[in-house]
């Protein structure tokens, strides 16, 4: 606090930069430590394979023979053969690919393909990411509209509240994702294919968080505010548009973030049972079939980036909307 006060006396810019630095520096350090630990972990994870290859190429390793090394501890092997540590970071099919390998693969399948003019080839992550993204967004839209609709019904109808709300809450404790393969196969068998089956899973997953969050939000005005509107003799729809809906906005955006993350998981899992054709989930499954670990990790990071962007966009909308409504400053 006192630091900030001193800094502010020396100029407004210093305070801002310092505050940003206070937020960013710890995160940067933590991420750097994680990446460092990742590199270190690569050595014992991949050392056996690296030594086998080095021995085949004619190098002398300690101890000789893959059989002797099989039951040794990986850390001990890594220490005894520290000369081959470099090899563990550049294997074709490592057990744990090094960060730069994943980054390279990510670039090769996204930016690199754009530069070659093959942005939407079947080997590009942009193509697979787009397949997953479209299912996610379509499902999210369906789920959000349905969730908000159900929440409005629950808030305005006593019997719906008593009958449906407990099921909406209980359904959150059920691993709905488990039925994803079944929905895909069943919808395929009755002729519904492509985007819609995956989107339905996404919709189902994002539906309940949005519904439960919106019920909370639409109920967030306190009695005093509701009483005020009833002294104005406001109708139920006026109360809804002028009080309930505006005050539900913070809840709306928070539950949309949860719903969006759930949607993406739904779309990825929905891609597994279709036999690994297209989409990020299909890349994961294909990678695990053929032992292409670098491909798995690249797909995983693509999914993570997608999730971060989607949730980030909602966060941005949240800030803009709430600022416009005067709810945050």
């Amino acid at each position: 606090m006192s630091d900030a006060a001193i800094a502010s006396s020396s100029g407004g810019f210093g305070t801002g930069a310092r505050a940003v630095w206070d937020v960013v520096l710890p995160v940067v350090v933590v991420v750097a430590v994680i990446i460092g630990a990742w590199y270190v972990a690569c050595v014992p994870m991949n050392i056996k394979e690296a030594l086998t290859q080095a021995e085949r190429a004619g190098a002398v390793v300690e101890p000789a023979g893959a059989k002797e090394r099989r039951d040794m501890s990986a850390v001990g092997l890594a220490l005894a053969n520290s000369a081959y540590a470099r090899d563990t970071l550049n294997q074709e099919r490592p057990r744990l690919p090094a960060p730069h390998q994943v980054g390279q693969e990510l670039w090769n399948t996204t930016g690199g393909m754009v530069l070659n003019g093959k942005a939407f080839s079947k080997r590009s992550l942009i193509y697979h990411g787009w397949v997953t993204l479209s299912a996610t967004v379509l499902g999210f839209a369906i789920g959000t509209v349905a969730g908000v609709g159900l929440a409005i019904g629950i808030v305005h109808s006593r019997v719906m509240n008593m009958a449906v709300m407990p099921w909406a809450i209980a359904s959150q404790t059920i691993p709905i994702l488990a039925i994803a393969p079944m929905i895909i196969v069943v919808l395929n068998s009755i002729g519904v294919t492509g985007l819609l089956p995956k989107a339905l899973i996404s919709a189902y997953l994002s539906f309940f968080p949005v519904a439960v969050g919106m019920v909370k939000g639409l109920r967030s005005p306190d009695n005093m505010q509701l009483d005020l509107l009833s002294t104005y003799s406001a109708s139920q729809s006026e109360t809804f548009w002028k009080l309930r809906l505006p005050s539900s906005m913070p809840y709306f955006f928070t539950s949309m973030k949860i719903g969006m993350a759930a949607s993406l998981v739904g779309a990825i899992v929905g891609e597994l049972p279709t036999g690994a054709v297209r989409g990020l989930g299909a890349r994961l499954l294909a990678g695990s079939y053929y032992g292409q670990t670098v491909q798995i990790w690249a797909a995983l990071f693509a999914a993570a980036i997608l999730a971060a962007v989607l949730v980030g966009v909602i966060g941005l909308l949240q800030r803009m909307t709430l600022k416009k409504m005067g709810m945050v400053h």
Partner: peptide, 16 residues
């Protein structure tokens, strides 16, 4: 950030 990611995707790696 990690809590919002599709962590389920690490399943094939951990199975390996």
């Amino acid at each position: 950030f990690m809590a919002a990611l599709p962590i389920i995707g690490i399943a094939p790696i951990l199975v390996m």
